[in-house]
Design a protein around this nucleic acid. Structure first.
Length: 491
RNA sequence: CGGGGUGUAGCGCAGUUGGUAGCGCGCUACGUUCGGGACGUAGAGGUCGCCCGUUCGAAUCGGGUCACCCCGACCA
């Protein structure tokens, strides 16, 4: 009997301890704050990766790979960037070990000290711009639109499974442009790509917007973000796209000759999403029975479970099941036929629910007689009996329905969890009693934002794009305001 | 780095006033089962995180140390 699962009521660790680890997604590693992603969890990441990679290519990007190690001196070139990252870097100081002359084991060879320390990349702006310097001379060399799939390390004081691990997998796009306008366009395009991915693949509604100065990426002029709401009422920054201006070009002296023959600094963007998206996916949709995966990202969209007593029954079912698997395959759906003899049907049902498999077909003796299958859907946990004739098309339609249903469920939840408030008392009350997003007026100053954060732990998640303009008064200072911004307590 | 908590079988946990370790799940074998995580019988599995101390005797008491988790500061 599975341990009773708790979900949206508790804190995030409950989600992971009860749902994720049991669902074979990840477990703690031997290394501080790092994460082991087991095969099933990694299969989800691979799905995400392949969709995103396609989207990047469709928007004119190419993949490249840059070094893991960054010379320390690179970091001192962009002042605000180093301030943002210096406190959380892993530093390589030596390149050799030796047997301990004093005893057992190995020690760092003091003779093998590096002349210049190497930083394990926390993000790759510096090493990439150091490289771009050599790639760019003329406006004819622009734009450069590279993406890198890589791991990065940030030595956070406190880590959280999936949401903030010391090492994480991500993609980082780095582009170079001849004009500010073109770079801003790129920044916005990539934000749209992320929003599209979140909503149409992850089935997770997001608010697109720009960050306030306080929350901006270290070294950026503008940070765009997609913000999602988790079922426990906390917000999660799920992807960011930065307009870097000419900051990195100036820091790394990357200039080009424009078509008027004049020298100018290159304009830059960077954008990234990480394995944090897996955390978002889990916390946005899971229920007390385990994961709920959107069909478009489920490693196993359809599973077929045979129910039988005898070898003869199994053989008959297998013929039908294998035929179905082939039919699904021809329609682009990877169905799994689980004829594992060592597990019983009830066990399999529970297991695939835990793993979030969207559609489960069960075929038993009863179905053999009537030419049926039992079709169960994960999102609603409902079952019905369907004729085997045309079941392939039925399942295709069902998968589409599930994809849509998961999204609308999450959207409905977000709408119900978004509150407009006009006073600070109300603001605090909603935060404590209801959680979720809060739309409120803000006077636009960092001081107010910081004080609200200090008193309530809520931050401005973003200023939504195409935000409705409306006269009002800042809930904290009472000063005039032109628009409401999006507040929430966040991960 | 501050505050709190936990380290005992693969996992989750119990362990009384100190007396030499147990439960559930899982695992192995056999049988009956198989349409919602089956049941019976018989088994296997632990230097009680590590070190030092107190004691005739320590999972239990004292000191230290390490690791992990939670709450803060920091952050994708």
């Amino acid at each position: 009997m599975a341990k009773e699962l708790t979900s949206r009521s508790e804190n995030y660790s409950q989600w992971y301890n009860d749902l994720v680890i049991k669902a074979d997604m990840a477990e703690n590693s031997a290394v501080r704050g790092c994460m082991v992603i087991k095969p099933y969890g990694y299969a989800i990441w691979e799905k995400m990766q392949s969709v995103l990679d396609r989207m990047f290519k469709d928007t004119g990007h190419v993949n490249a790979y840059f070094p893991l190690f960054i010379p320390k001196s690179f970091f001192s070139k962009e002042a605000s960037h180093v301030e943002g990252f210096a406190k959380e870097c892993a530093v390589v100081t030596h390149y050799r070990l030796m047997t301990d002359p004093e005893g057992k084991g190995v020690v760092v060879d003091p003779e093998a000290r590096l002349e210049e320390e190497l930083i394990v990349r926390p993000t790759s702006e510096t090493i990439i711009w150091n490289t771009y310097k050599n790639w760019i001379q003329s406006y004819r060399d622009l734009p450069i639109k590279c993406n890198q799939w890589a791991n990065v390390v940030r030595w956070e004081m406190r880590t959280r499974l999936f949401l903030r691990t010391a090492e994480f997998l991500w993609q980082e796009g780095h582009t170079a442009h001849e004009s500010a306008r073109e770079a801003i366009e790129e920044t916005e395009t990539m934000l749209k790509v992320y929003a599209d991915f979140a909503e149409n693949y992850m089935a997770m509604p997001v608010v697109q917007g720009v960050k306030t100065a306080n929350e901006r990426f270290a070294g950026a002029l503008e940070t765009y973000t997609i913000e999602a709401l988790m079922q426990d009422g906390k917000a999660l920054q799920s992807g960011t796209s930065h307009f870097l201006g000419q900051n990195f070009a100036k820091a790394f002296d990357v200039t080009f000759t424009n078509n008027e023959g004049k020298l100018d600094y290159v304009w830059a963007t960077s954008w990234g999403v990480s394995t944090r998206l897996m955390g978002a996916l889990i916390m946005a949709h899971s229920d007390d029975n385990g994961l709920v995966l959107p069909p478009k990202l489920a490693p196993i969209p359809v599973v077929i479970v045979p129910i039988y007593k005898t070898k003869e029954e199994l053989d008959k079912i297998s013929v039908i099941a294998k035929d179905l698997v082939a039919k699904f395959k021809s329609m682009g759906i990877e169905a799994k036929y689980d004829d594992n003899d060592k597990k019983k049907p009830g066990w399999k049902f529970a297991e695939y629910e835990l793993k979030g498999v969207p559609v489960r077909l069960a075929i038993g003796p009863r179905d053999l007689e009537n030419n049926n299958a039992e079709v169960a859907r994960r999102d609603t946990l409902t079952k019905e009996t369907v004729s085997l004739d045309g079941i392939d098309q039925y399942v295709v339609n069902l998968l589409n329905d599930i994809q849509k249903n998961i999204f609308s469920k999450a959207l409905k939840f977000r709408e119900e969890s978004t509150t407009r408030v006009d006073s600070f008392d109300e603001f605090k009350k909603v935060l404590d009693e209801k959680g979720g997003f809060i739309l409120a007026h803000w006077d636009g100053t960092s001081e107010t934002e910081e004080q609200i954060k200090a008193e309530t732990k809520a931050t401005i998640r973003c200023i939504p794009l195409n935000n409705e303009q409306e006269d009002g008064k800042c809930i904290f200072s009472g000063k005039p305001s032109k628009q409401r911004v999006l507040f929430a307590r966040a991960y």
